[in-house]
Design a protein around this nucleic acid. Sequence first.
RNA 1: GUGGGCGUAGCUCAGUUGGUUAGAGCGCUGGAUUGUGGCUCCGGAGGUCGGGGGUUCAAAUCCCCUCGCUCACCCCA
Length: 443
Amino acid sequence: MAQVEARVLKGFRDYLPEADIPRQAMLRKVVAVFESFGFGPLTTPALEYADILLGKYGEEGDQLLYRFADNGGRDVALRYDLTVPLARVVAQHRSLDMPFRRYQVAPVWRAEKPGRGRFREFLQCDVDIVGEASARADAECMMVGLEVLGALGVPGFVMRVNNRKILDGLLDRVGVEGRERRHAVLRVMDKLPKIGRAGVEAELSDEVGLDAEARSLLFEVLGRPVAGSAGVRALDDAVGGSEAGRLGITELAELLDIVEAAGYGDRVEVDLSIARGLDYYTGTIYETFVRDREGFGSVMSGGRYDTLLAMFLRESIPAVGISLGIDRLVSLLVDLGLVGGRAGTADVFAAAFDDEGYGAMVRWAGALRRAGVGVETSLVAGRLGKQFRLAEKKGYRFVVLQGPDERAADKLALKDLQSGEQVTVDLEEVVRRVRSAPDGGHG
RNA sequence: GUGGGCGUAGCUCAGUUGGUUAGAGCGCUGGAUUGUGGCUCCGGAGGUCGGGGGUUCAAAUCCCCUCGCUCACCCCA
């Protein structure tokens, strides 16, 4: 057979054990938080009929689908997110009880140009609530997200919230009409934290053609510091007579009331420049950034999409959700030095003293496992120096072994690689000591 | 997709005005060390100098093309 160059597609990656171990550990914590809020799992196919996905993400989004004809000539595409497949599931299985809470942790594919923190295949962790229109559902999703970041030990983060209807009201009042122009304004406003007010004003003038009056009207609202729900209510006059604007203000204020009452107010702030690119958002929208690492982009975002279900059904069903990008978060935590790699997944490494004692070693290793201590057994006997070096490199804190002396006394030698201390004790004591170690033996 | 930067060992890089067998550190691997890791010492493997073409007696080095990576714009998780 001809030899081929070993390689992966651009934007796709392998996760070697050292990187995958902290990543998987984080995923377990994410799922645990999701389930603690009563969300249940959902798994859907990677591949969908193309027409299920088309037209849901805007024109640019359609271009970014991995789309092709399958072997039977069907027009298919890899899922672009987890929200549209959820909408499809809800539309297809009408017996689901509402409100329906589900979480899904699965890869999605986007044919974008890859860059720092951006991949063509990446894992999303979503929670959504379908069938509840009140701000309580929005608040629930936000709070799950905030709890997840807390559980993962993410240092300083802020969730910035806005409401599409406020932006709509604002655009109505300023007199920006037509989908494209409205999009253009939102896109420029989105850059506010990056290029500042002067930059935004310049772009609004040069690229969108907004006159000075319209610009100052925009900034009359955008420029205001908005503190909490009271601050949001104070915006009422700013959106003028716009019905949509007033509705958005009410929704956002109600949302903040709940979030503040629940004690999450310190991690949430209103940011009227948040726009979100996806087409299907209709109300609340939010993005989450880590302080001092805003350049990494949003690590968790989402919003309300009350009209998406109507694309599959005659009736419309309200829905809201949030999505966490675990890959981006992992590289961020690595960058901050908060997660380290480690190649071993057990609690202790069992060194094999000699070939004669190998069978006995496998036996006491099994006993340790049944007692709740994970054991990686060495497959090569002898050369203890080599085995210790391997254990150390794989990140183990403890090495357990049984030489002739220990065997005669029916004991095990337990060495703590961190302190260098070694004791000869019985199996129960090994279990006790390993389990009482601060990190469960994960040096 | 548009513009800037960079491609030499698994990784980070050195390589003189073009000059003969292309180097270092780290990592990997074997040994010093047949009851014990980190430190030290000695050895070994590993390179079509991203690829193709051109100039030249001679190219990692100069020129052209191409591919890949990367930063900014755009968009996002």
